[in-house]
Nucleic acid binder design. Structure first.
Length: 713
RNA sequence: GCGCGGUUAGCUCAGUUGGUAGAGCAUCCGGCUUACAUCCGGAAGGUCGCAGGUUCAAGCCCUGCACCGCGCACCA
């Protein structure tokens, strides 16, 4: 006689127990999976920030990927899902620095590089457990034996190897160029780490001096002390006569030399049609200066302060300097117009600091250089597999966005002026430069102080997690990975760079399919943010309604590439569904008194038809799974279980179960059990805990864990 | 400026190759029927953003427009 189930399903009691059972089985590791399995199926988990806490976005990612991997496992694949965590360089360092500043009133320079790194490591170690336990709480069936951290030893070797190979190929170079300087974070950032914000600002129209023949317009008068030219369009009749003339002027107490030049990049319609060229503090101006061989005078430093001028200017913040220069223009009768305009300003994604373009000597990845012996650039390597369909991006329209990004792509600035990260393996001695992990032989070598952009190491993730640069079995078996599932917001940061790195280092794509999910928003469609206080905490919801309910609420109603809205009532709805399923099982266990006898019973034609009907549903769901329509597969099984199985089949079976005719009764019992088992299998990838728990209560011969049972035909 | 997506029931969203509009939640009515009140039975609710076009047939295809969101570029 089977034990009687409690009236309501208690997720908290079940979940820890079941997860432990799964882990103890060893089946998360594909090497231990039962049966003959030849076809590999692999996913790398986009590594969450090691010091972070689980938010609904990560919960969505874990839910979808677990659906994928469980489905693959039930389909007899060598299913591998590699877990990992990300060091999140700038974010983590900033966090630790803030703590230290608060508790000890010290900054990083007081501590020194080594001590700070020690503190960060300790902080990471202390916080790591949190995110890992949260991954477990979601039911994620990751192979913990292959856990990777972006800053661990194996990944360090991979990053070094990648850098050195690209340096030797000439793809990584050092260049003095205008870079995006974040004065708040005190580091350079890449073009992709810029967030544009619309702000009101003033556009000033003025002349450098009374004698200067041309007026110019600017939103940043303080930078004009760094001007070395005025550029006009070559066809602009108003200014033709001045082109080629040079002037020595005194501007706001600073001597400047201005040459009037003609350049096609100038828009004659904007402002006065004449552009004051500030080579050292504007990307466009830098390019103009390159074309016309102008000098590039830097007037602002890394702290956003002026480096020229008298006491009213020198060492002042740019905002103060701006006021002074405007005042000076007014006093000298040079200001002609002052108007409000809306401008897009560049801010740093991580710190919010306003970007100050500055010329700096930095390390770059060249994306337009032909690779030796391959007649391809890194841009080609990124574009080709997507264009040919070797990599499929879901939703498909993201492909356009992807190409658009590649078309506009410039060289990637990869050096950062922070301490936490993979240090640039470059050594200097006088005029010598060497690229190596270890300090070169001999005296006087100094290592480059910078570390690499965190996305540089992330870009290697599909193969660094498999042991590269060693030619491991895992690498041979599981790379290219089957599918990459991640948020559309990191298509450029991560997906594109992985395609680049894998294409260059392995001559392979990193994955065959990219599935992009959207943002999880609150019930009003707003972004989740601390200031709005609208965060729905996944762990709290798991505690209240169960991980299965949270998973279902995230997956259903979410299509690829679109943002989804989540609310507590939605989660509650799926908790109710858990309970419904629980009671279906309870009813069936109560109606089937004993063991395996009836499993050999003959089915009535009516009962057989019910089973055949389910087979149709099952095939339909399988098709949805194969075509990545998880939301639909989930909804269909939900609908079948509740409104077909429970509402109709079970209700109608009540008569059969009390029938005088033992054949009818036995047939009904067999039918109910078979349908239940099929439903549990179909639902398992979505709601793994409750299905596993119910399955464990059934008396079935040759039963294994549900997680490794065969997906219904 | 270039591009992408969205606009379907009060709310959140489905609608896979064009074939009589769907789900959940909310609402209303009725039910403690011995699996489940975290439930059961029933009802109401939609000119599918607007305007044209193709078609025997359009939520779905084509053209234009509007509004919302997003990406990129510009940003003197």
């Amino acid at each position: 006689m089977p034990e009687e189930l409690p009236k309501t399903y208690n997720s908290t009691e079940v979940e820890d127990k079941i997860y432990k059972r799964w882990e103890d089985s060893g089946f998360f590791n594909p090497d231990n999976l039962p049966g003959e399995r030849t076809e590999p199926y692999s996913i790398v988990l986009p590594p969450p920030n090691v010091t972070g806490i689980l938010h609904m976005g990560s919960a969505l990612m874990l839910a979808i990927e677990d659906v994928l991997i469980r489905y693959a496992r039930m389909n007899n694949k060598k299913a591998l899902w590699i877990p990992g965590t990300d060091s999140a360089a700038i974010a983590t360092q900033a966090r630790v620095e803030k703590d230290i500043s608060k508790k000890e009133s010290k900054n990083r320079h007081d501590l020194g590089r080594e001590e700070l790194l020690k503190r960060i490591d300790r902080f990471v170690e202390e916080n790591k457990a949190t995110i890992l336990s949260q991954i477990r709480a979601m039911g994620a069936s990751v192979d913990w034996s292959r856990y990777a951290y972006t800053m661990d030893g194996i990944r360090y070797r991979a990053v070094m190897a990648a850098f050195i190979r690209m340096y030797e190929e000439g793809l990584i170079y050092r260049g003095n160029r205008i870079v995006n300087w974040d004065p708040k974070g005190q580091t350079t950032i890449s073009d992709d780490e810029i967030v544009y914000e619309e702000r009101k600002t003033k556009l000033y129209t003025f002349r450098y001096s009374k004698d200067f023949p041309v007026s110019i317009a600017t939103t940043r008068p303080e930078t004009k002390v760094g001007d070395t030219a005025v550029a006009v369009h070559p066809d602009d009749a108003r200014y033709k006569k001045y082109v080629g003339k040079e002037y020595d002027l005194e501007f706001a107490g600073v001597s400047i030399h201005i040459k009037i030049i003609a350049d096609k990049s100038v828009d004659p319609e904007f402002g006065t049609g004449a552009l004051g060229v500030t080579p050292a503090h504007s990307t466009i101006d830098w390019e103009i200066a390159e074309r016309h061989d102008l000098s590039k005078k830097q007037v602002i430093n890394e702290y956003g302060r002026m480096t020229v001028g008298g006491e009213n200017l020198l060492d002042k913040k740019v905002t103060e300097a701006r006021e002074f220069v405007v005042q000076w223009l007014k006093e000298n009768g040079l200001l002609e117009k002052e108007e409000e305009i809306i401008q897009n300003i560049s801010t740093a994604q991580r710190t919010g600091g306003i970007i100050e373009p500055l010329p700096k000597l930095q390390w770059f990845v060249n994306v337009t250089k032909k690779i030796h012996g391959r007649n391809k650039t890194l841009k080609d390597i990124m574009r080709d597999p997507v264009a040919s369909g070797e990599i499929k991006i879901i939703p498909e329209h993201s492909t356009k966005t992807y190409f658009h990004w590649i078309d506009n792509l410039r060289d990637w600035c990869i050096s950062r002026q922070i301490w936490f990260g993979h240090r640039v393996p470059i050594w200097y001695r006088d005029q010598e430069i060497k690229c190596s992990i270890e300090k070169p032989a001999g005296e006087g070598w100094e290592q480059d102080p910078d570390v690499l952009d965190t996305w540089f190491s992330s870009a290697l993730w599909t193969f660094s997690t498999l042991g590269w640069p060693d030619q491991t079995n895992d690498l041979a078996t599981y790379h290219p990975t089957t599918i990459l599932e991640t948020g559309y917001d990191i298509l450029f940061f991560w997906v594109a760079r992985m395609i680049m790195m894998s294409g260059f280092h392995l001559k392979q794509v990193p994955f065959k399919t990219v599935y992009l999910h959207g943002l999880v928003r609150d019930e009003k469609g707003r972004k989740i943010s601390k200031s709005l206080g609208n965060n729905i905490d996944p762990l709290k919801m798991i505690g209240k309604y169960g991980a299965d309910a949270v998973r279902m609420s995230l997956i259903i109603g979410t299509t690829a590439g679109t943002d989804s809205k989540l609310s507590e009532p939605k989660i509650r709805g799926y908790r109710n569904f858990s309970n419904k399923l629980w009671n279906i099982a309870r009813f069936i266990l109560m109606s089937i008194p004993d063991s395996t006898e009836f499993q050999k019973s003959l089915l009535t034609t009516e009962d057989q038809k019910l089973i055949d009907d389910l087979a149709v549903v099952s095939q339909d769901i399988t098709k949805d799974m194969e075509e990545f329509r998880f939301y639909m597969a989930g909804e269909k099984i939900y609908h079948y279980i509740w409104h077909a199985f429970a509402d109709k089949i079970i209700e109608e079976s009540k008569v059969k179960l009390t029938s005088e005719d033992p054949a009818i009764k036995a047939s009904a019992q067999r039918m109910l059990l078979e349908i239940l088992v099929t439903c549990l299998k179909l639902l398992h990838p979505f709601m793994p805990f409750i299905t596993e728990e119910i399955y464990s209560k059934l008396q079935i011969p040759d039963k294994q864990l549900l997680m490794v049972e065969k997906w219904p035909e």
